[in-house]
């Protein structure tokens, strides 16, 4: 299944580049609210993000905890 981002939205964002944020925000929000394709893609992204938000953080990279501890509490020499 492949459904790249709505080309109308991408074209709109390109066309409004450099315009005042208020105007861009209104125009883009209006498009997303009325575009069936955008609605589906937004739902898909929200589903992915919901799962990412609820996932546990991965373990620290190897050795990072020891390096941090050495900086926070230098061994007494």
């Amino acid at each position: 299944m492949s459904h790249p981002c709505c080309p109308e939205l991408l074209a709109l964002l390109d066309a409004l580049d450099g315009q005042p944020p208020d105007a861009v925000e209104r125009a883009v929000s209006a498009h997303v609210a009325s575009c069936e394709r955008c609605a589906g893609e937004e739902r898909h992204l929200d589903d992915l993000l919901a799962a990412v938000r609820s996932s546990a953080a991965p373990m620290l990279p190897t050795g990072l905890e020891a390096r941090l501890l050495a900086r926070l509490c230098p061994p007494i020499t």
Binding site: L10, D22, E41, L45
Partner: peptide, 22 residues
């Protein structure tokens, strides 16, 4: 407003990048 525009652009980029996921 500027933040919301950044969010729109970020979401569009992510929709594009993650379009192959199901």
């Amino acid at each position: 407003s500027a933040l919301k525009v950044r969010l729109h652009r970020a979401r569009a980029a992510l929709r594009d990048a993650l379009s192959h996921t199901a």
